[in-house]
Amino acid sequence: MRFSSTLCLVLSGSLLGIPALAQPASNSPLYNTVIQKLREGKQVFSFTQVKNDPQAYCEAAKHYDYTWFEMQHSTLEFRDVEAMIAACPHVRAIPMIRLPDAQEWHIQHATDIGALGVIIPTVDDVDRAREAAKWSRYPPVARRSSGNGQARSLWGSNAANYAKTFNDNMLVVVMIETPTGVANAYDIASVPGIDIVIIGNNDLSVFSGFAQDDDRYQAMIRKVHDDTLRAGKIFGQANAIYATGHPLSKDAKFFQNGPAFDGWKPAGVSNTSAPPPGEEDAPGKKPPTKKDK
């Protein structure tokens, strides 16, 4: 069995037969509600925040499981995300950041400003996965260093309290987005400290040259699914249209975007499960449903 920090991932005894996050080894409090929902076998969805707009962020964050702060494909800076998190601390949606890469300073900045999860794109090999895990938690399980930032006041009564509880409340998500990543999926998922593996659906289509309704594309998704579960980790897909009606929907637990838990929709948005602008698949190509398979 693989261990992720002081969190271990075990096969659930539920009828769903999906991996679940086990109880932490310590008695530290759990303030990352996404972890609790994943333990219960629930699907989790986000609102993607791409602009520095504290008012819009604080409103949307009332209605989702977590916020996907987009720093790979936006001009957001860490000071922008820091200000938004500070504008409504302890709002329902857990702050998570998609970073451009797995560099130490990016992950240190993300966690210091209060993120309880990082999402690392285009993970093709074990080396990148190890870098993601290496800087995401405190010793002795990883190498995050102690620094100043608002995180300790947001999530702990003081610096010592935060440092003792953080590891059990952190999530490290890696994205498989290329055929190379698909080929290495089991080794990537098996890296200690990696908690969740998700498909970057649009980029996998672009890099492979296969539309999402192509059987060859679907075979790649299934391989990543099988490898992730075999490694004892949580499987997900960036595109929330895979949350229902797809052969792998019952095992997919982590999504970008998707429905709010209370039915709320932002003004002008009719389909909250649609990919963010710029990440749509080719026109007319839709993932197959169970009826198609």
Rank of each mutant, 00 (worst) to 15 (best):
F45A: 13
G17T: 12
R39L: 02
L16Q: 15
L171G: 07
D124C: 09
I198M: 14
A93E: 01
F3I: 15
D127H: 11
G200S: 11
E104M: 10
N52H: 14
H63M: 06
K233N: 12
G268E: 04
I119W: 01
P277D: 04
S145F: 01
F254D: 04
I234Q: 08
Y217N: 05
V91I: 15
Q49D: 04
F166G: 00
H90A: 14
V123R: 04
I113C: 03
A129V: 00
F210M: 05
S205V: 06
T111A: 03
K250L: 11
C8L: 13
G284C: 05
R143E: 09
L204T: 01
W135E: 08
L76T: 07
F210N: 06
P140T: 11
R230D: 12
S146Q: 02
N201K: 07
F207W: 05
I221F: 03
G284Q: 03
G13S: 14
N202D: 02
L7E: 12
A87W: 03
P19L: 10
F254W: 14
P179I: 08
Q256S: 13
S205I: 02
N184Q: 13
Q103F: 01
N167C: 02
S4I: 11
P100C: 02
L229W: 06
D214V: 07
L171E: 00
V34E: 02
A219H: 07
L116M: 15
Q72G: 03
S12T: 13
F261S: 10
Q150V: 04
V126A: 01
Q256I: 14
C88A: 15
Y31L: 12
N167P: 00
G278M: 09
S14D: 15
M84E: 03
L229D: 01
S145T: 13
A61V: 08
S249Y: 04
S190T: 04
P100L: 04
R39N: 14
I234F: 12
V44A: 05
T33I: 06
G209L: 09
K42R: 15
L248P: 01
N201C: 13
P179C: 07
I176H: 00
S136Q: 07
D80H: 15
W155C: 02
D112V: 01
L229V: 15
L154W: 01
L38N: 11
